[in-house]
Amino acid sequence: MTSMIFAGNTDQDTVVSAMLPKQVAALCVRINPVIWESFIALRFDILDCQDNQQKRVLLHGDGDIAAAVQLLSTEVNRLTTQNNQLATEVNRLTTQNNQLTTDVNRLTTQNNQLTNEVNELATVVFSGAVYVRWGRTTCPTTGTDLLYTGYAAGNYFNQEGAADYVCLTSEPIWGVYDDAAQPLSAKMFGTEYQFGQQSYVNGGARFFGKTLLDHDAPCAVCHTSRQATVMIPGRNQCYPGWTKEYSGYLVSGLSGISGHKSPTNYACLDADAEYEIGDHFSNDGKLMFLVEGMCGSFPCPPYVDHRELTCVVCSK
């Protein structure tokens, strides 16, 4: 059948009917709008006129509909199967995610425990520094704790052997021992102040405010919360930014005198040195003498020949 042109409506509400000139058998109908107002808008029905009655007509037969239904059923089944597969995969991934979440929580808890242990070790075990306060039984009031008090001790002054002053605890705990004297052994003796033998008036009272000659030297081991300590010989004040723990005078064993064979290190003796009441006996042992600076390779100034050297212990 050739193309035909039918008149449409001129508004959006009026229904317009058009009759085909004769009966037509067709699978489809093509409608091409020719004229429109503003934009194309079209709704239509095809009616069958029999016995003066109008009935809507399906353009496809039963076979076409059955085939379309079968195609749609197949697609629905495919999509249902795909959906079920996706649901199974979602369940698998959800289970895997839950397991990973459990693992993350476990590792987070373990990490928190390790972090707490590290922080505890950093603040308790590795925090602060320890130093010996020679000549005193207490620690300074600079945020320090007393670890223990004891006795300055070392090798006998006229014997070769160990050099260092040590702070021997006042509360010994014994292991296996033999109280018999051994013919060959290293020995430890208490330490005496010997400032009177250096021709100082009143056994060094001008330096320490009291006579210390032949008295025994105590000591205290102190812990400070600050990270580092240093003993600075040659001055009795700390450098800026450091905290003064205590100051005093540099002491050691005697130099250049025959009979004083024991080497010693240098120690900083507190300017307010103490001693025990009733210990004023010349038992010798390890000895402490004031240290003088000697010009030569030693720069003077700033130092002065034969002047007693001060010292200070600082922390930061």
Rank of each mutant, 00 (worst) to 15 (best):
N158T: 07
G253E: 10
V166S: 06
S185A: 13
E245G: 14
M188F: 06
K210E: 06
T224I: 02
F126A: 11
T142L: 01
A217M: 15
S252T: 14
T191M: 14
A129E: 13
S225H: 12
G190M: 04
R235G: 06
S199K: 01
K244A: 03
T123K: 07
L147N: 04
A163D: 03
G190P: 06
S127W: 00
T243A: 11
K244I: 03
N116P: 03
Q194S: 07
A152G: 06
L212F: 13
V221E: 05
T169S: 09
V125Y: 11
D164T: 11
Q182F: 01
S185N: 06
G135D: 10
C222G: 05
G175S: 12
F207H: 13
W134A: 14
F126P: 07
S252V: 09
P233E: 10
R206H: 08
Q237S: 14
D179T: 01
I173H: 05
V125I: 12
A217G: 03
Q194L: 01
G204S: 10
L121P: 00
G209A: 05
P218Y: 12
K187N: 14
G234R: 15
G234F: 15
I173R: 01
S185F: 01
Q237V: 12
G248Y: 12
N155D: 12
V124W: 11
K244S: 06
V166E: 04
P218L: 11
V132T: 15
A220T: 13
L121D: 00
G143C: 10
V118Y: 11
T224N: 08
P240V: 02
A180P: 01
L212H: 13
G209K: 12
T229V: 15
A129D: 15
G135T: 09
W134P: 12
Y193P: 13
Y156G: 00
F157L: 05
C222W: 02
L121Q: 00
H223S: 13
L250M: 15
I232H: 03
N119M: 02
Y177F: 07
N119L: 01
L184D: 04
D179H: 01
W174L: 04
S170D: 09
D145M: 04
G209W: 09
V124R: 14
G135Q: 08
G196A: 14
C167P: 11
D179L: 01
L213T: 03
G135N: 05
S127D: 12
G248W: 06
N202W: 04
M231N: 09
L146F: 01
T138S: 11
